[in-house]
Amino acid sequence: MLQLDCREMVCPAPIIELARHVRDVAVGDLIAVVASDAAARVDVPAWCRMTGHEYVGEDLAGDEVPRYVVRRVE
């Protein structure tokens, strides 16, 4: 799983990073955004809905920062 470190970023930067790198993983593989920005909790699933990717869910990175996991579709 590719993990993007977006800890210090404010919206919409984590979503921009996600869009930039989603094609770095193969179709069906996972990509994760680690972001402390509160908007990411809503915006990652919304981005998935708008772009056709699959939102897998949320867990925590090693340092307890929220991590949002996406599966590349298409």
């Binding site: 919206c11 919409p12 509160a38 908007a39 809503v42 915006d43 699933p45 919304a46």
Partner: peptide, 24 residues
């Protein structure tokens, strides 16, 4: 309804409750 650079950094609770994109 976006507040990316506001002091609170909290997204709109309305857009969040709807699952709508909160930025832009």
């Amino acid at each position: 309804g976006s507040a990316c650079t506001s002091s609170t950094l909290e997204p709109s609770h309305v857009l969040a409750a709807m699952g709508a994109l909160t930025h832009g």
